[in-house]
Structure formats: structure tokens, C-alpha cells
Design a binder for these strands. Structure first.
Lengths: 348, 348
DNA sequence: TGGTTTTATGAAAGCGGTTACGGTTTACGA
DNA sequence: TCGTAAACCGTAACCGCTTTCATAAAACCA
């Protein structure tokens, strides 16, 4: 069944394709009865203009690409949801590009990001959002970075929570503030012995949070023990590993700051299994405030990134970039500490 | 900065665009040295063929649309992940179309599905997957159904877990088997008083599971109390509501089958808060086996839909449809009961 | 060696829209 | 009544690629 085109409509309406196009786009005045005749035919044949042809000449597609490492991590759907809410208002549709589904190693993931960058530009997307993944870890001058830089010359690229300030447009959370809020909260509850677990020691957010947390502690005259800063990863499993290690130490912390909620859940799980009561024996602060944070037992105190808002903001900024509005290189959002049940005052 | 085109390459290589196209697609023999010269230029200018132009004439885009209600529900990312793993092998990129982000009411959602159907066909996607949402609830003959039917005349449409067998291609879990497995498990643990909570009474999966569960019970000479079949929804909140209601009844069940894991988590949460021990005082079986099911305390016994596999299968089938291979109208996958810690033998 | 196939390439016609340009009408004010 | 601006509409070029058709040269075969 061949699809109907503007030519079919034009012929049957006894007008030129130009006129059809004009009523389609409301781009020039058309006589009322002509317009109605055309509209009727459009309706009759359920005519749908071919977006490819239109985009080809208009040089805009209304398509955006989002590259992220793993849609299975609940953090990302939340960002996506916010992004979608906002992007929809601008009429964008987006490609979801998952670079990690199916547990592949990071080298492969590097290739994936690169591949997607290619596919997306070939498909002529209006803009690209990169979220997490290798680009967050990449060093200035690395191959991936220069590739992204190259792409961003051709079309808007926005990093969410990305690294390398200055080189790229990015929207991110104020990591320092988040860690500071967590630190203040625990310190004010009377905790002195606090561990920091999870994350990657080479990742910007982990570094910044750790630094800020330490700094805040120091402002209160407290120290963070080196051996209590541990973990390499963002998974539940990682949290379980960490708490096991911590509980084996001669000196145990009374509170733990986790680099994300999955890790926090792991810690919670591990601690509970080891017979500890949370929060009485151990206070836990998560990070990200994913939806499940409020569904744990006990409900998790967590630094809320207002992730949804992050997504919304990203869509807003990307749209500005696409429409060539002035946009600051970096936009920071303020996190908020959501105090729930997994933290309480330290009791001797 | 204007993008480089086949013409630019052709001119500089002293050949026609046809030849460039031929080396690009390996579609006809080209003299070796000519080919090399062209390849070099392609590399030199980082030439990327415009996919729009190509798709316009080839009548295939390598793009797929996935319409789902709420990416924030962890069930969907898991399907997506599986879908992606497989779709990638075929070279597809996909649009994520969320019809519910931002908590809108269902009427609005109806419009969204319809809108996306339009947008996707205009963008000339090669196929569409519909997953959950209104189409699952729609009655034969309803406006949405006839619309989807109309679309599916033009391009392959695949329903995951969809309703209306016969009318559409669909891949789904064997709901009857899942409920049967859960029933058997609980019955063999000695439970006699079992509640069924969550879901929507008008939804196929809820109906089928309830029927199958009831039937299995009857095979053992047991009955399901009417007042213990309750709940309208798939949220944690809904689970909490249900368990509260159940605990207020004079007769309490000793086990609960939940229509998904979110509901199960709600039940777990509510029961724990009410001072019950899970599983000693109450056995809970979830449904879906989302990743978090294994992260709860206690870890959740759940009917595993092997959701990832569902996604993979969907991609496989959609690809077959796109390439016009023979495909059965309905494909059923077998669920599996994952026994963890939230169920145990009934003790008087 | 002459005929046939295969290789190698270009010219040009699309794919399905949008839009610049130009030519008629019609409307309107003086 | 006439001049000018606005309304209305068609022709044709163009977006960037693929593909058919035709042609010429090279390779193969008897």
C-alpha cells in the first residue's frame, strides 16, 4: 500500500503541491475554500507528511539523542522522565541509547558511546545529551573527549553531571553542597565516626563529595579515617561488600555516607543481616534519593538530587542551545537532604 | 559549517556521486584505486552520510518506536534493556515514548498514545512496540484499538503483554502458569488463607492470574475469599493500603500474592510497620521479579517474568515482522518462580 | 579474432517534502 | 479611476542520497 503524498493531495484538489504545503504549515495565506478542500482530503486519506523529507530540507528533525550507560539503574529513568516532560513541550522525540545493557566491559562501552555519537549525527538529531558513562571519567585530551568536542561543533551537546567543566555545556548537581548537607546532618546528630562508601575514586562526583564531606568534618574539628573511605562501584553488591569490610574492622563507624542509594541499600542489607539495627546501631545516608529510597525499611535518609528536575533542566537548556539562545556553560542545581528513618542521634 | 556531502567527495575524487554511493554501500564493484581514493576523502572529511536522505529513498530508517506508560516503573527499563540488547544486533535505534511521565490522568494518556503513534509513523519508523498502557485495557472496537489496527496495516506493530489476542501480534508471559507456580508454592508450604492484592480488575494479566490462582487452589480443595481479592493499582502505596485493609479484617490471611513487586514491597512495608514479621507471620509473593526484589529485606520471593528476555524476544519478533518473516500471532514465554526469603512454611 | 559477459562509471530520475520567485487577482485608499 | 499593497497560487529548484539505464572498456571464451 503506497503512502499518500502531497502530490496526491494536490492533484485531487486541483492545486499545486506548494499550496498543500502552505496549508500544512500555515506558512502563507490560502483561500478559505481551497484550504478546506485540501484539509478535507488530508483527513480523507489520513495523510501524514513524511518527516524525513521535511527534515531533509528544513534541517531540523525534532529528534534528540540521549546516551547513558544503563537504563536499568533507577537513577536514569528518573532523569529521563523529567527530561521527557520538558522535551515534549518543545516537540522533541528522543532516541534512547544505552551503552551498557548486557553487562559489557568498559572498553566496549567506550566504543558504544562512540558508535552512538555517529549514528545520532547521521540521523541528524537536533541535539545530544550525554549522561554518566565514560565521558564522566574521560581525561581532557582523550580520544573520546576530542570526539565529543568534534561532534559538539556540529550540533548542541549537553552533559548531565558531566566532567570537564569549561569544555562542554553541562548541567549538574552541586556535589559539594550535597555532601556538606549530609555531613552537617550526621555531625549534628552527634556522629563522629563516619565512613564514606561506594563510588569511583576517579569520578568527579565521588571526588568532590568526599572532599566536601571531609572539609565539613574538619570545620567541626573532625577527621575522616582513611580506611573508612572505601568501595569501588555503585551497586547494591558493592554496598554489601563495604559494610562487611567495615564490620570486620576493630573500630567501627556509627554512620555511613553512601555514594548512591543502591550502595546504601546494600549497606542497609548487610548491616541488617549482621544483626545491626538501623538506624539505632548505624545511621545511613544515601545519595540520589531514587524512588526506592522511600520504600526501604527503614526509609532511607538521602541527598535528593531532585533528579527529575535535573532532567527537566537539561531539556530546557538543550532546547535553548538548539534555538541558539545564550546559555551559561555550567548550570548547577541545588540538592536537598531528605531526612527519613535511616539516621538518628548517636547514642553511646 | 556546512556538512560535507557525497557531491563534495565526488568532486574532489573526480568521480560521480553514484560511484561514491557505491563504495559507501558496497553495492557494485568499484576499481580498487578509485575506491581507496574515495575512502581516503571520506576519512579526511569525516564524512557521514545523511541518514534522512538515505532513508527517504530506501524506505527504511532503522528506527523503532517504543510506547510505554512510565519509564519510572522499574519493570519497563528492564524490558527496554533486553530489547536494546537484541535490537542493537539488527542495527536499530529506538525512540522512547513515555505516555505518562508527569502524572497525568488516563484520558490524557490516551491522547498521548495516539499522538505518539502519529509522530512515529510520520518519522517513518520501521516498527512500533507498545508496552503496557491504555492499549492493554482497551476493548475491541474502541477508538484506540482501531487506530492501532490502522497503523499496523502500514507498518509492523508488536504488543508486549498486550491484550486482544488475535487482532495483533504480541509477545507475552504465560500468566496462568505464573499464578499457578505461586499458588503451588504457597499451598505446599501449608498456607490455606491467601490474599490476592493489586493490579486492575479489568486488566488481562490481573484477570488471568487471579483465575489461574483460584483454579489451582480449587484443585487442592481450597477457596479464595472474595474480600481478600483487593486493590486497584500497581504502586507501593497501593500495597500499603491493601495490607492495612487486610490487617483490619477479623480473619487474616497468612500469605499474600501480589500483582507486582511494587505492590509486594508496599505490603512488606505495611506489614513490617504493623509489627508483623515477614515471612514468619506473613508470606509474600511478588510478581515481575524486578531487580529490587532481591534487594529487599527480606529478599522477595517473586514470579520471574524474565523480563529482560521478554524484551529480547520482542526485538527478535519485531525484526522478523519488519523483514517479513513468518511469525506466529502470539508468542508466550514461561515465567519461573524465584524462591527467596519472603515466604516460609505456615506455622500454626 | 569476434562475440559475450563482466567490470567500471556517469547522467539523470527520483524519494517527498519546502520555499524562493514571479505572476495574477483582489482590496483599498486617495 | 488609478496606483499600490496584500492575497493567492503555480513553477521549479533544492535537500542529500540511491538506483536505473546506458555506455565504454576490460576480461573471458570458443
Amino acid at each position: 500500500m503506497k503512502a499518500v503524498t502531497v502530490y496526491d493531495i494536490a492533484k485531487e484538489a486541483n492545486v499545486s503541491v506548494a499550496t498543500v504545503s502552505r496549508v500544512l504549515n500555515n506558512t502563507a495565506p490560502v483561500k478559505k475554500e481551497t484550504k478546506e478542500r485540501i484539509l478535507e482530503l488530508i483527513n480523507k486519506y489520513q495523510f501524514q507528511p513524511n518527516a524525513l523529507a521535511r527534515s531533509l530540507i528544513k534541517k531540523e528533525t525534532g529528534m534528540i539523542g540521549i546516551i547513558l550507560p544503563d537504563i536499568t539503574n533507577p537513577f536514569f529513568p528518573e532523569v529521563l522522565s523529567g527530561f521527557d516532560q520538558q522535551a515534549r513541550n518543545y516537540g522533541y522525540t528522543f532516541f534512547l541509547c544505552d551503552t551498557m545493557s548486557a553487562n559489557i566491559d568498559t572498553a566496549d562501552q567506550y566504543v558504544r558511546e562512540s558508535e552512538y555519537l555517529n549514528v545520532l549525527t547521521e540521523k541528524q538529531v537536533d541535539g545530544i545529551v550525554m549522561l554518566g558513562g565514560r565521558i564522566d571519567l574521560a581525561k581532557p585530551g582523550s580520544e573520546l573527549v576530542s570526539e565529543v568536542l568534534e561532534v559538539s561543533k556540529r550540533l548542541p551537546v549537553l552533559l548531565i553531571n558531566g566532567n570537564l567543566p569549561g569544555s562542554f555545556y553541562r548541567v549538574a548537581m552541586d556535589e559539594r553542597l550535597g555532601a556538606e548537607l549530609a555531613a552537617r546532618h550526621l555531625i549534628e546528630l552527634g556522629h563522629r565516626d563516619i565512613a564514606i562508601v561506594g563510588g569511583y575514586r576517579t569520578l568527579r562526583n565521588t571526588i568532590q563529595r568526599t572532599a566536601s564531606f571531609t572539609k565539613t568534618m574538619e570545620q567541626y574539628g573532625l577527621k575522616v579515617r582513611k580506611e573508612w573511605v572505601l568501595g569501588e562501584g555503585f551497586s547494591v553488591r558493592n554496598g554489601e561488600d563495604c559494610i562487611r569490610q567495615l564490620l570486620e574492622m576493630p573500630q567501627r563507624p556509627t554512620a555511613v555516607l553512601c555514594m548512591n542509594d543502591l550502595v546504601a541499600i546494600g549497606v542497609l542489607k548487610g548491616a541488617t543481616k549482621a544483626g545491626l539495627k538501623v538506624p539505632e546501631d548505624l545511621s545511613i545516608v544515601g545519595y540520589d534519593d531514587i524512588p526506592f529510597a522511600s520504600h526501604c525499611v527503614p526509609e532511607l535518609t538521602s541527598v535528593s538530587l531532585k533528579v527529575n528536575e535535573l532532567g527537566q533542566k537539561a531539556a530546557e537548556i538543550l532546547h535553548k542551545l538548539i534555538t541558539r539562545s545564550k546559555v551559561p556553560k555550567t548550570t548547577l542545581l541545588e540538592p536537598e537532604l531528605i531526612i527519613r528513618e535511616s539516621t538518628c542521634a548517636f547514642r553511646k
